[in-house]
Design a protein around this nucleic acid. Structure first.
Lengths: 243, 243
DNA sequence: CTGTATCCGTGTTGATACTG
DNA sequence: CAGTATCAACACGGATACAG
């Protein structure tokens, strides 16, 4: 290769310039017109996609993001939020006066990457090395319902389900169109599940009988127990690759 | 998978120093049961997903992979191939005697990540910062056809199209089920396009009239010109975010 | 309490040169 | 052609320290 060098736009990368660091959007690029390559430039950095996942059900504060992503340090989270904001995937907003706190919220386009997140998750769930017994954030549990629901069976008997997951609360509408999730306090639901994400996952995905999980104190059900028994069967895991 | 040493999580990061380097499969992990997080562990490293993209239409040699991914250095390609093989996403095979060369081929499960690649690409194509005029590999062009085809319109008049893209050749069957792509020499096609991936992309996605591209020597058409004129209209780009 | 900006040890990435 | 070896830059994550 003579002059066919890749043009690097590194340019001024010195120290933290003076007082105005500016938006340094100096990420790595692939120099590839392929949309997939650009997607990786946008959210291929470590943690980025998981941050988006956490925000999938509405705006969150910095500390709430950290809670859903233990292992992500504050400085890296700050960098990722800057990058995602610069890319137009999220915005930081100030909640109106009584609250007056800053939250991070996906842009409409940011929300639209849910199908990609789901496709990745659905594919990786078949990996031989996937371990579903690891910790799980509330958001990823709710997202897994949206990803894995058997729409046909859900449509046979729609239901509204409440979730009390520690500090997170959700209401899910489950019907033939899939699962719709909102961050709101359960009210007038067919039943409500209370417990940790891992306990609920153990029942829905790990095959633990609901009664057993209740007995062990992992989850508790209030409301229509029969509907709850049905709910936990609506999310079939795809077969692992060797089977 | 031979050495299935999936050493995972635990709080302590031991220094991998006492024993010799070994095959360190000790990738970064997220310690998260979410399938999406696991997908990122499997192919979230830089270049991994693009390597899978290149292999989407059949086995390739080391040098063919490099050709489709300029900017990826040999040592990193080696590492990625090792990682993807260990993850069960691809295998390295020896072609039978006359050839007797090594090729890398996706496993059946590896091929199944195409929907995820497509979802990412479809989403990122709407990014304000996406630049479709960058270089493009032959594989990503063909994949983009599979991703972007308007099935309804394609079904109205199915066709078989040949592609002569430098060293790469393909035949695509375009109908109401989408686009099926095989790496084979065009024969008995409705028409055949010859040129570089960027030239063809300029016509299909950049809005350049086919006649103009032919006049400029970017592409050449042999066969049914009318079908070709129709073909280049079958792949509508989604609107960019600000519009 | 909510974030942001440092330093710093370690590991990963990538360009170049080199070997079978 | 198909990778290795070496080395420099940088990204990661922990631990602060700092600002509102």
């Amino acid at each position: 290769m003579k002059s066919g060098k890749v043009i690097k736009r590194d340019g001024a990368r010195e120290k933290s310039q003076e007082t105005r660091p500016e938006k340094r959007l100096d990420k790595r690029w692939y120099d590839d017109a392929c949309g997939t390559a650009h997607a990786l430039e946008l959210l291929g950095e470590r943690w980025s996609l998981l941050i988006v996942r956490e925000l999938m059900f509405g705006p969150l504060r910095f500390s709430q993001l950290r809670a859903g992503l233990p292992g992500l340090s504050a400085n890296v989270l700050t960098q990722r939020l800057e990058g995602l904001e610069a890319a137009g995937i999220l915005i930081r907003r100030m909640l109106p006066p009584p609250a007056s706190v800053q939250v991070y919220e996906l842009t409409p386009w940011g929300y639209e990457c849910e199908p990609a997140i789901q496709a990745l998750g659905r594919w990786a769930a078949r990996s031989p090395s996937h371990d579903p017994s690891l910790p799980l954030s509330a958001a990823s549990l709710m997202l897994s319902f949206r990803t894995m629901v058997d729409r046909r069976r859900a449509g046979e008997r729609p239901m509204t389900v409440g979730f009390l997951l520690e500090p997170d609360v959700f209401v899910a509408r489950v019907d033939g169109d899939g699962v719709e999730v909102r961050r709101e306090m359960p009210e007038n639901t067919d039943f409500t599940l209370r417990g940790g994400p891992r306990g609920i996952a153990a029942v829905v995905y790990g095959g633990m009988p609901l009664a057993e999980a209740e007995a062990a104190g992992l989850v508790s059900v209030s409301g229509d127990q029969t509907a709850a028994e049905r709910f936990v069967t609506l999310f079939p895991l795809p077969p692992k690759v060797g089977s």
